[in-house]
Design a protein around this nucleic acid. Structure first.
Lengths: 207, 207
DNA sequence: CCCTCATTCATACGTACGTTTTAATCATAC
DNA sequence: GTATGATTAAAACGTACGTATGAATGAGGG
């Protein structure tokens, strides 16, 4: 059995995904974790710092994978095609979901929760690393898509995040009228790449 | 001065957008509305029903506008092109934001909050009308994009929602490195149409 | 053995929450 | 003018929350 700290992180991650940050009490977390109420205070200091720890644990591997993917691409060619850049950027949002996560849907919902949270702190926690990744992809996409203004490029990069995050959430929510079976995970990944590569490759919007 | 009920709805809408549903207390709402604490209970019954009322007030006009736009399109031609379908579907998410809403950004954030809320009730409140609109657009897109499986079509429709919702939220969050000025509202609209029309028009993903 | 330090535990504190109740207020119709 | 129904006001209720406290527990080193 894992140590209490990890158990709390796991339980918090699950509950945050299911009920949001405000909607999850410290007591619910420690109950699910089989830990004592005071353990959160002991291991993390406060609920806010626990939230930050959970967010970091989710976001950091994704950032790292995005970065590694871009490195791999750039090692092959200095100017990768759009579709491969899309795959490198969006792919890690589909992979690397920890075991026990139903097809990554739970983690996706958590990303959505982070993404949609109005609180400003949510943006500072992941700060530096995320900004670096973003800037590197912006530069790479900029070379692959000359003629696109930085603002529109930025808009499109956000679009990638939005599509990948929201889609998977809905698979989780069973909102898909079709068959949201396990295969949906891999299918969604390919659909997303198709969808987003075409979107990114669109000509610049005329003034 | 508007009646208390409307003042409460306005205040709640603003605060829900800024802090989420769980993060907004009834007291904060009535304070901002200049109303008495008990007014929420009197006019809405409970906080949950107030949330439902706010959600409905935001979602219904958008659904109506989407439906009307599709009607207008179908009156002209039985098989509208993809770009126009995209405009009819995504456009209302940019228009029709009530006055006082900074370029619609606040409403967009609220939509994002609704969209990202893990609670299942959030999905039932808007239910029937939203489903009808969705099905009609699915059918229209299906005719414009033969060869696309219903599942992938559904995926792409969700993508439209995701991009429009998330984008505008980030303009609000000032996360855009460029100039998030008032012009961003109209520019974002055109960027979104370009981006999404290209995405929707992508060929079906091979098996 | 016992001391030490990290961890866990039961419990309590103060606060903020959603809701309810009862009284006051106000406009309108008779 | 006063009775009536709808609204607002003030206060209190019980509950759940995040956090803090101090005692118990348990493993490892001297």
């Amino acid at each position: 059995m894992a140590d209490t700290r990890t158990q709390i992180l796991d339980a918090a991650e699950r509950l945050f995904a299911e009920r949001g940050f405000h909607g999850t009490s410290v007591r619910a977390i420690t109950d699910l974790a089989g830990a004592n109420l005071a353990a959160v205070g002991y291991h993390f200091g406060s609920k806010a710092e626990l939230v930050a720890a959970v967010v970091r644990r989710v976001v950091e591997p994704i950032n790292a994978a995005q970065c590694a993917g871009l490195d791999r691409l750039l090692a092959r060619t200095p100017d990768p095609p759009v579709a491969e850049l899309v795959e490198a950027f969006a792919g890690p949002l589909f992979d690397g979901m920890p075991a026990g996560d139903e097809g990554g849907a739970r983690t996706s919902r958590l990303i959505m929760t982070i993404f949609g949270d109005p609180a400003e702190e949510m943006r500072t926690w992941t700060g530096a690393a995320e900004d670096t990744v973003r800037d590197r992809f912006l530069a790479a996409f900029g070379r692959a898509l000359p003629g696109l203004s930085p603002e529109e490029l930025w808009f499109r990069l956000r679009g990638i995040l939005a599509v990948t995050a929201v889609d998977r959430v809905d698979v989780h929510n069973q909102r898909c009228p079709g068959d949201p079976s396990p295969v949906a995970g891999e299918a969604a990944r390919r659909w997303a790449i198709t969808f987003l590569a075409a979107a990114m490759s669109a000509p610049p919007t005329g003034t």
